[in-house]
């Protein structure tokens, strides 16, 4: 039962991650996973969810790139 639940949660996370990527929404899980794989070290911390959210919005909308079409 617990195993099934965990599998389901994993699948849900995959779906929500796909939706976020398709619509260009910030994906904190993805950022965290990457951060722990490459930057993680004792004494330093990743951005909090809110910090990352604000950072990602600025990256997407306030850098002057064209993200959409007519």
């Amino acid at each position: 039962m617990r195993r099934k639940l965990r599998a389901m949660r994993k699948a849900m996370r995959k779906v929500s991650s796909a939706i976020k990527t398709i619509f260009g929404m910030p994906d904190y899980d993805r950022y965290l996973a990457h951060w722990y794989e490459t930057h993680g070290a004792p004494g330093i911390f990743p951005m909090t969810e809110r910090e990352y959210y604000m950072y990602a919005l600025t990256e997407r909308f306030e850098k002057g790139g064209v993200t959409r079409c007519c």
């Binding site: 260009g24 993805r30 990457h34 951060w35 990602a56 079409c69 007519c70």
Partner: peptide, 27 residues
């Protein structure tokens, strides 16, 4: 450049969706 933010290797079909959502609009 994989940085977990802008440069992220993405599943082919998810990226297809991303690209389509960006190009399709009112035009």
């Amino acid at each position: 450049n994989n940085d977990g933010k802008d440069f992220v290797p993405t599943n082919k079909w998810v990226l297809f969706g991303h690209h389509f959502a960006a190009i399709a609009g009112a035009g």
